[in-house]
Amino acid sequence: MITVPRWPAWALEVLALVALAATALGCGAPVYNLDAPQGFVRYEKKKGPAFITPDGVRLRARTERNYPKADLPFWADAMERHLVARGYLLHGKRCFKTAKGLEGCTAEFVLPHAGEDWVLAETVFVLGDDLAVLEAAGPFDRYQKVSASLAKAYLSFEPAP
């Protein structure tokens, strides 16, 4: 007869606590630092940086896998091609370096949404095996008012140490 060794109860409790702590600390997902753009306020309780203006222009950061592993020009090109193929109108595109020397590219697209023209701006940074994607969106005229402050805020982007 084969006996299967059992974990002691205290070991299971320790494992559960470690898993809980890791989840609470956000292990497994990169955390970013990003200054609040002028005119935006921060959602403190959202996971990752998230901001909004009084008239509803939103900015949020999220993480995607850099798979297949590629560099920034590749992803910037793929993103532009995909959204243009969907019918989004490319309004502007620029690549820049953050204050910490991290390279990023922003592409702004115009699209109809809810009876208005909206802007969807996608900014991509390549961070090894991950991609940091900053997404901003809002009605065209309202977005235009804060586009400069958004561009300035992107310069402060960096992965949290």
Partner: peptide, 19 residues
Amino acid sequence: ISYVNSPFQWLNKLDIDRF
């Protein structure tokens, strides 16, 4: 505005409604 599939999965998430 049409829905086309990209071979790169994360690009398929780029959408105003999803955002």
